[in-house]
Structures are given as structure tokens and as C-alpha cells.
């Protein structure tokens, strides 16, 4: 690891309680420039909770967060987005009745001049920018003006990803981007992630698929029961070690496991 690289995102003692349940217990996390990181862990380990805190969807109960050299506390997803963090959520977060540009620019529409909610939409500009953004992902969608609900899961996922990529963000977070996709579509999304790596865009990937994780990222953060129980370099570890960290059971019992 070249530790001279600038730290993009750092959290210190990040906690989140839901009522009496501690979903996140003091997460110390660090991401450097151009780095691709995976977050792995069992269901309920706190992966998605962690992501919701750093994307402003929820506010942490305690702890600090530093982004791009400054301490931040995001009140809403829009705050996080304005700071340069883009997220692709597990449940896609697309409006099925809207077309591709409308989805990409949802919540930050291009307008001719600002009249608040009564501003006129600049559809031409949004369409052009949407095309540009999709080119980065190297995915072709035949008609961008079609409602997104009529497209395949892969096409929809690519729209969601290109939404993140299009806004030239400082950090992209993907929560299970291939969970609902077929083999071919998964390959497409993985290619997009590799492309982002080449472009030097930092990325946090949350995935259950360990093979995918080993293929794509530099470092792996393992969550268990709301805590970060291990940080390992992807090329200095193996499936056994990761699974042991995930489950908390010692090495050796996972040799025949099918999840590696």
C-alpha cells in the first residue's frame, strides 16, 4: 500500500443505534485516493447501516466523519451528493415511470432558469449529459426516452451506476450492485467498476460475492455484528480467512464451503 496517497474518506467511532439495538459499534474506516474497497459481512452485520450513515440517508448516533480533508455531517442524501459522494442503492432507487435522463437527473434537474419548483426543465441538456454519462459505462441503451421500468435489470443497474459516474463524484458507493443480475449483466457491471478504477475514481463495494470482491478491489473491510473485525489486502488473503472473519469461526472449517 502506498500510504502517501490522500485519504478521501475517514470515519472515527461511527455508531448507529435503532432504539435499543446497536447496529453499528464504533466503525473506524479509511479510504484513500483511487482506492477500491469492499465491505463484506453477513446479513445484519452493519454493512448497509454503515453506508446509510456515510451517504446521509441516516445520521449517525455518534462518531466523526471526515471527507475530502474536512469533517462533515450530512443532513440528507443531497448533502452527501453535493460533497461528491454518489451511491447506487441495493433497491436501485429508480423511478420506473420516468425515462433515463429523468432518472439520472432526479433531484438535480437541469433547468433553463431557476423558478424553484416551477423552473422549466432543460430536457435537451439532460439527454445529452445522460448519453455522455452512459458512454463512460460503455453500455448502450437503445432508447433513452423509454420508461426505465420497461428495461432489463442490467440496463436499469447501468443507469443507476452511470447516474453516479456522470456526476464526476469523488466517491462512488455500490450496495450489492449485481445481486439481482444475470451472469452477462453482472460481467457488464464488473467491467464498469474496472473502468472506474482505471479512471481513478474511489469506490466502496458491498457484496456477498467473495469471488467478485477478490477480482475487483484492493482492500476488504469485514463487518460482523456491527463492528469492523478485519481489514485485509485483497491480494494477501484468501476466501478462508475472509469467511472466518465474517462468521467468527476459526479457519479450517470452510474448506468445502460453496460460498467462496
Amino acid at each position: 500500500m502506498n500510504d502517501a496517497r490522500k485519504i478521501v474518506l475517514r470515519t472515527q467511532g461511527l455508531c448507529k443505534n435503532y432504539g435499543g439495538v446497536q447496529a453499528l459499534k464504533g466503525a473506524d474506516f479509511e479510504l484513500r485516493e483511487g482506492e477500491h474497497i469492499a465491505i463484506v459481512g453477513d446479513n445484519g452485520a452493519g454493512k448497509s447501516t454503515f453506508v446509510r450513515q456515510i451517504t446521509g440517508v441516516e445520521q449517525p448516533s455518534s462518531g466523526q466523519m471526515f471527507f475530502d480533508g474536512k469533517e462533515v455531517s450530512f443532513k440528507s442524501p443531497l448533502d452527501a451528493r453535493e460533497a461528491g459522494i454518489e451511491a447506487v442503492f441495493q433497491n436501485l432507487a429508480l423511478a420506473n415511470d420516468l425515462d433515463v435522463p429523468a432518472n439520472i437527473f432526479l433531484g438535480r434537474e437541469e433547468v433553463y432558469f431557476n423558478l424553484g419548483p416551477f423552473s422549466f426543465l432543460n430536457e435537451k441538456k439532460m439527454l445529452a449529459k445522460a448519453k455522455e454519462g452512459l458512454e463512460k459505462t460503455a453500455v448502450k441503451i437503445p432508447n433513452l426516452r423509454n420508461a426505465i421500468g420497461k428495461m432489463s435489470g442490467g440496463q436499469r443497474q447501468c443507469v443507476a451506476i452511470s447516474r453516479s459516474a456522470a456526476f464526476a463524484s469523488k466517491l462512488i458507493i455500490m450496495d450489492e450492485p449485481t445481486a439481482a443480475l444475470g451472469v452477462q449483466e453482472t460481467t457488464q457491471v464488473e467491467n464498469i467498476i474496472r473502468r472506474l478504477k482505471k479512471q481513478g475514481v474511489p469506490l466502496i463495494l458491498i457484496s456477498h460475492n467473495l469471488r467478485q470482491v477478490f477480482n475487483l478491489v484492493d482492500r476488504i473491510f469485514v463487518f460482523r455484528r456491527g463492528e469492523i473485525v478485519g481489514v485485509v489486502d485483497a491480494d494477501k488473503t484468501d476466501g478462508n480467512e475472509i469467511v472466518s472473519l465474517i462468521t467468527g469461526v476459526k479457519t479450517g472449517v470452510h474448506e468445502n464451503a460453496s460460498y467462496i
Binding site: A102, L106, E109
Partner: peptide
């Protein structure tokens, strides 16, 4: 005109289509 060409309409359709997506998108 409001529904088809303005931010007002875009947000109205977006909330009707997927309220969670609209919220996550910062509307």
C-alpha cells in the same frame, strides 16, 4: 405545462413512481 415541462411535474411523477427513490435522490 406544469406537469410536462417543469420541475414541479418531474417531482410529482417521481414521487408517484417511487417515493423512496425520490427521497434518496434528494427531493
Amino acid at each position: 405545462v406544469l406537469l410536462k415541462y417543469t420541475v414541479y411535474g418531474r417531482r410529482t411523477y417521481a414521487i408517484g413512481s417511487n417515493e423512496d427513490a425520490a427521497r434518496v435522490a434528494g427531493i
